[in-house]
Structure formats: C-alpha cells, structure tokens
Simulated assay, not measured.
Amino acid sequence: MAKKKAVDDADGAERPALPATSWAVLGLLSFGEELSGYDLKKWSDWSLRFFYWSPSFSQIYSELKRLEQAGYATSRMVAQETGTRDKRVYRITGEGMEAVRTWAREAPVDPPVLKHGPMLRLWLGHLLEIQQMREVLARHREFAETMRQRAEEDMEGAKANEAWSYPTLTLKWAERYYASERDLAEAMLADIEELERGKRP
C-alpha cells in the first residue's frame, strides 16, 4: 500500500499521515530517553492504558518500523551481558520531535467515545436475572477500584521524574476517573435495588 502524505499547515512541508498509535509511540520517545520495545510497552502500561489504551508488543514494533521509515526515529543494537541477546533501542530524531510537537499542537482532538460493557449489559437487563446484573456491576466496581489503586501507585512513582510532570497529571486524572466509575457502579447497584422494590407487590 502506498504511503499517504499529509501537508503540514504550519510550514507547508509534507509529512507522513500517521495513525494515532504512531503518535502515541512517538510521544513516548519524546521524553528523550533511548528505549527498547520492552521499555515502551512498560511505559505505556504505566501511563497510556489509564486513559487511552496499551498497545501490544506487535503494535509497538510495527509502529517503530513505521516511525523509522518516516525518519522520526532511529535505532541501534546495544550489547548485553554474556548469554543475553543484544537489544535494539530507539530514539526520537529532531524531525520526529518537531512532527509530534506539531501534531500535539495542531491536530484536531477527537472527542472520547465511550464503549461501556457493563452498561450495555445493564441496558439488556430485561433479558437477565437480577443477580446477574448485580454481579456485572459488582465486578465492574472491583475492576474500577483496582485500576484506581494502580493509577495512584503509578502516579506516586512518576512524581520522582520531573520530565513526567504532565503524565503524572494524567495519572491523577485516571485515579479520579476510576474512583468515579467505582462510585457510579455502587450507585447503580442501589438503583437496581430501588427498581426491584418498586416492582414488588
């Protein structure tokens, strides 16, 4: 498939039209460190997964290849200890830094699209037993609390790195978001109880 080109409105230069996944991976590299694919996966699990998604290893390596082809990243092999395979590490280029900066400043911001599995199941509550709906919401409440705790832990860890001040804020947002999801699940359980009381003779 031919590589599509997009025109940058700021300077008129042609740049590859990359998907959001590419920009997210390039964004991870924009913090200035030389990172392996494993590092990038770990960093995305520490931050991106709480508000966007966490790419698989195969997605990360596909995007790194795309970014190298675009001239936005470079890589090199680094020798490891005896008995351990050498690893490839990646670094953002000056052109890549400028491209991701332009994208962050000028690309339209897509509104969030909510795909809420528990609410879809509750919407079909007339097809379920009441206990099933309680279990769906109880599991979601537990999931939300687990994610809240993890976001809080990762936020505390990120505070130590000054370069991660803004990712720390997104983790703070995630902690609040999952707390609200937990509380909403609790409120919905109460709503179900009230609904059932109203149906009883």
Rank of each mutant, 00 (worst) to 15 (best):
A6H: 09
A6G: 06
A6E: 14
A6W: 06
A6C: 10
A6K: 12
V7T: 15
V7N: 12
D8E: 13
D8H: 12
D8G: 10
D8K: 14
D9P: 12
D9T: 14
D9N: 13
D9I: 11
D9V: 13
A10H: 12
A10R: 15
A10D: 14
A10F: 14
A10M: 14
D11E: 10
D11R: 13
D11W: 13
G12S: 01
G12W: 02
G12P: 03
G12M: 03
G12Q: 05
A13D: 11
A13I: 10
A13P: 01
A13W: 03
A13E: 15
A13Y: 09
A13N: 10
E14W: 00
E14M: 08
E14N: 08
E14P: 00
E14D: 12
E14V: 13
E14T: 13
E14G: 07
R15E: 10
R15A: 04
P16Q: 01
P16G: 06
P16T: 01
P16H: 06
P16D: 07
A17Y: 01
A17H: 01
A17L: 13
A17N: 07
A17M: 07
L18W: 13
L18C: 09
L18Y: 13
L18D: 12
L18P: 14
L18T: 14
P19A: 05
P19F: 04
P19N: 10
A20P: 06
A20T: 09
A20Y: 06
A20E: 10
A20V: 10
A20S: 08
A20F: 06
T21D: 04
T21I: 12
T21R: 12
T21Y: 00
S22I: 08
S22D: 15
S22W: 07
S22V: 06
W23N: 05
A24W: 05
A24Y: 07
V25R: 01
V25H: 00
V25Q: 00
V25Y: 00
V25M: 04
V25C: 01
L26I: 08
L26T: 11
L26Y: 04
L26R: 08
L26N: 08
G27R: 09
G27Q: 05
G27T: 07
G27K: 07
G27V: 08
G27N: 11
L28P: 02
L28I: 04
L28N: 03
L28D: 05
L28M: 04
L28S: 02
L28T: 09
L29N: 09
L29W: 05
S30A: 11
S30P: 04
S30R: 05
F31V: 01
F31S: 08
F31K: 07
F31Q: 04
G32A: 03
G32Y: 00
G32M: 06
G32P: 03
G32W: 02
G32H: 02
E33G: 10
E33C: 11
E33L: 14
E33W: 13
E33D: 13
E34H: 10
E34R: 13
E34M: 11
L35Y: 02
L35M: 05
L35K: 00
L35N: 01
S36F: 00
S36M: 03
S36V: 07
S36K: 03
G37H: 03
G37C: 03
G37S: 02
Y38N: 00
Y38R: 10
Y38C: 00
Y38S: 04
